[in-house]
């Protein structure tokens, strides 16, 4: 019984004191749970799209042209590339390469802006015929809802990028949480978009 009293305290990670290690562990788990939780809103909206299809005999409804695939697909590719670049930049910073981080994130943010520009275009150019039905309305709901998230998180990325440019992060494991967090939020944007992209453009 006394075995339960044996101190099984983990050894602190190298370079991090115990509190900082716990904070990082908390941040990471918290981020994972937040992602798992908030993706449910996107699932809820997919359910909305799905159920509304059943109010119509066919989907897209009669007399409505299906959405063009080209531009959204380009946007999706841009976003995926952007997420990969964000990851590369974060990995670079962990190894202490600030230059690599800045270069990758510059491109990632640029691609992100491009993605959002296409989404804005898609949102704005839904045909009148489509907007008279849930086919067009749900497109606006989904792109709009996603856009709000992309915008907020891109702002976070930009903030972190500028901070890093000003020398706020010395690189290495210990104070890169802001960058790790921003990158993980950006993955979230990418994953959420892929779900929407498939539901909106591919499943008919």
């Amino acid at each position: 019984m006394m075995t339960s009293y044996v101190d099984r305290q983990e050894k602190p990670k190298i370079g991090l004191d115990r509190d900082a290690a716990l904070r990082l562990k908390n941040n990471r788990l918290g981020m994972t749970i937040f992602q798992a939780s908030w993706i449910m809103v996107f699932f809820a909206i997919i359910v909305v799209n799905w159920q509304l299809r059943f109010s119509y005999v066919q989907w897209p409804p009669a007399g409505v042209a299906p959405f063009d695939l080209l531009l959204p697909s380009i946007a999706t590719l841009a976003l995926l590339l952007s997420a990969l670049l964000a990851r590369r930049g974060w990995a670079g910073l962990r190894r202490g390469r600030l230059g690599e981080f800045l270069a990758s994130w510059r491109l990632a943010i640029f691609l992100g802006v491009g993605f959002m520009a296409i989404i804005v275009y898609e949102f704005a150019t839904v045909s009148e015929a489509a907007l008279a039905t849930q086919y067009g309305i749900t497109l606006r709901l989904m792109t709009g809802f996603h856009f709000v998230h992309a915008l907020a998180i891109l702002a976070v990325m930009l903030h972190v990028y500028r901070g890093a440019g000003a020398g706020a992060y010395r690189g290495g494991e210990h104070d890169a949480w802001a960058i790790e967090g921003a990158a993980k939020l950006w993955y979230f944007v990418a994953v959420a978009w892929i779900l929407f992209y498939v539901v909106l453009y591919w499943i008919r």
Binding site: W38, M40, V41, V48, L52, I137, L141
Partner: peptide, 28 residues
């Protein structure tokens, strides 16, 4: 989050003129 989704739709229907819950507009 499902409540958040539902309330978002309710707000949009109330203030933005969407018809997610209005049968006359293809809603349910």
């Amino acid at each position: 989050p499902f409540l958040a989704g539902a309330l978002t739709l309710l707000l949009l229907d109330r203030v933005a003129g969407t018809t997610f819950f209005d049968a006359a507009g293809g809603g349910d």
